[in-house]
Design a protein around this nucleic acid. Structure first.
Length: 120
DNA sequence: ATTCTTACA
DNA sequence: TGTAAGCA
């Protein structure tokens, strides 16, 4: 299928699809006219990319785990993949703590009616 | 009509 | 990532 149909079936823009390909996350072969052609399974790959993206993973991180993840083992058997995911979980936890701190500062300001200046 | 590459008031 | 431009 051409990029237009892949886009239609996955919801990803042609621009994004070309970007994923440039990053090596998905592949394609060219037709005589130079148009990109994708296999049916690429649809699943792009859907997986979008899913992981919604999970907060960066494209560079996805590029590292998706290949193995889409392979024979969708289980986390590969220790390398497992490691990457564990690191991501830690990053997410870290971000949650940052957000919690922001939340505390904001709610405290609302309760007291003013923002506490660090210099005083 | 659709895709391609390149580039950014 | 969007979008416009100029081709094929």
């Amino acid at each position: 299928m051409l990029i237009g149909e892949l886009s239609k079936q996955t919801g990803a823009s042609a621009r994004s699809i070309r970007h994923y390909e440039k990053l090596g996350i998905i592949g394609s072969h060219r037709a005589e006219n130079g148009y990109r052609r994708y296999s049916e399974e690429t649809v699943e790959w792009v859907k997986a990319i979008r899913f992981l993206l919604c999970g907060g993973l960066s494209l560079s991180t996805i590029a590292r785990i998706l290949p193995a993840l889409m392979n024979i083992n969708c289980k986390l058997e590969d220790p390398e993949i497992r490691r990457v995911i564990e690191e991501e979980a830690i990053n997410v936890k870290s971000r949650m703590e940052q957000l919690d701190q922001s939340h505390r500062i904001l709610t405290a300001a609302l309760e007291k009616g003013y923002l506490r200046r660090p210099s005083e």
